[in-house]
């Protein structure tokens, strides 16, 4: 069974978007890996993915410690597609506002303004932009490395 690995950095959303796209594109399993201060982001990304779509389950999770010059922990969370993906009615706008640095006490008000101005929820458009920017970033990185 194909298992893709996604390395989670500082952005929960970017990690979640990459996992979602991998599963949507056909991967049956995706392993999220993160170290040190990014461990929380990996856990949040895994939760987010399972909230956005039904049909994705936690398959396994482990934490290991690496002892080098200092101790470093690493988490691995494996998500598995158990049936066809089906959308839950979950908005990602709060997460985008949080990552944009909007203070927690202002998120509800800003979200309301966005939903009114947009005439609905822009989460799908934002998810598309997140995925497409990542794909282009990957292309540009390959160009630099080639």
């Amino acid at each position: 069974m194909e298992c893709k690995t996604v390395y989670c950095g500082e952005s929960t959303l970017r990690c979640a978007a990459e996992v979602l796209y991998s599963l949507y594109e056909g991967a049956e399993k995706v392993a999220i890996r993160a170290r040190g201060k990014n461990i929380n982001n990996a856990a949040d990304a895994a939760l987010l993915v399972t909230r956005v779509f039904k049909g994705i389950d936690l398959s396994e999770a482990s934490i290991s410690s690496i002892f080098g010059s200092k101790r470093l922990s690493e988490i691995t969370i494996v998500l598995k597609k158990v049936k066809d993906l089906e959308e839950n009615n979950v908005s990602l706008v709060d997460y985008f506002l949080e990552e944009a640095g909007i203070p927690a006490e202002e998120i509800e008000r800003e979200k309301k303004t966005i939903l009114e101005e947009w005439g609905g929820d822009p989460s799908g458009v934002l998810l598309y932009m997140l995925c497409i920017v990542e794909r282009i970033h990957h292309e540009l990185s390959c160009r630099e490395n080639s």
Binding site: L20, E25, E87, V125, Y128, M129, C131, I132, R143
Partner: peptide
Amino acid sequence: FHEISHRRPHLSYSEALNLVKKTKIER
């Protein structure tokens, strides 16, 4: 972003991921 906002402002997650899949990026 501006074009999609104008033409498909209420993309669902499945539609968004499908659109990513159908977006051709070649270098």
